[in-house]
């Protein structure tokens, strides 16, 4: 919420003075210049944003690089709790959610996302090993928009991302 007001204030200042520097904004809002710079960058980033939630760093890196090469803005979180932390400042256009994670698994994260009115409309694609869907029926029932079986085909993942984004824009 704090960040939202901060964003609004930054936007307001930018409208009033289009050539205002980040330093000036920081002074006016009495926050650090770094924060303002970061927010400005985020606000000016027009790429579609994808959040990957996965506890395997190598899996994240590979997917992240591939999607970044396609022009997506990719952010990542190592587990459910970190994902919710991140969501407070960044609202992604789509979430890739790994199922098999310690502490809070992907189904639980998805369920909590869909229960929250702020995040309800973010499309969620579950990344799951084959069989997990059958084991825990409800991957789609709990509100996931789509799922991809690991190890996935990169083209297929990209196609599914595009599909859910288009569906969301409609």
């Amino acid at each position: 919420m704090e960040k939202e007001t901060l964003d609004k204030d930054i936007m307001r200042l930018l409208e009033e003075q289009p050539d205002i520097s980040t330093k000036e904004i920081a002074e006016k809002l009495s926050v650090s210049e770094d924060v303002v710079a970061k927010r400005v960058e985020v606000l000016s980033d027009t790429r579609e944003k994808i959040l990957i939630v996965d506890d395997e760093p190598d899996a994240v890196i590979a997917t992240k690089r591939a999607l970044e090469a396609d022009g997506y803005n990719v952010i990542d979180a190592g587990n459910g709790a970190m994902a919710f932390d991140l969501l407070r400042s960044d609202i992604p256009d789509v979430i890739l959610l790994d199922v098999m994670m310690p502490d809070m698994d992907g189904f639980e994260v998805c369920k909590r996302l869909k229960e929250d009115p702020v995040y309800r409309n973010i499309p969620v694609i579950m990344l799951t090993a084959k069989g997990e869907i059958e084991d825990k029926v409800g991957g789609l029932d709990i509100g996931a928009d789509d799922y991809v079986t690991k190890p996935f085909n990169l083209k297929e993942l990209k196609a599914r991302i595009k599909t859910v984004l288009r569906r969301a824009q409609d």
Binding site: D58, A59, A66, A69, A129, G131, K150, P151, F152, L154
Partner: peptide, 22 residues
């Protein structure tokens, strides 16, 4: 075991497909 075996496979597959495509 299946999860642990698939995880590195997924990373490898994704990265090799990415290099092949791009």
């Amino acid at each position: 075991v299946s999860h642990e075996l698939k995880t590195p496979l997924t990373a490898m597959k994704t990265s090799s497909e990415f290099m092949k495509e791009t």
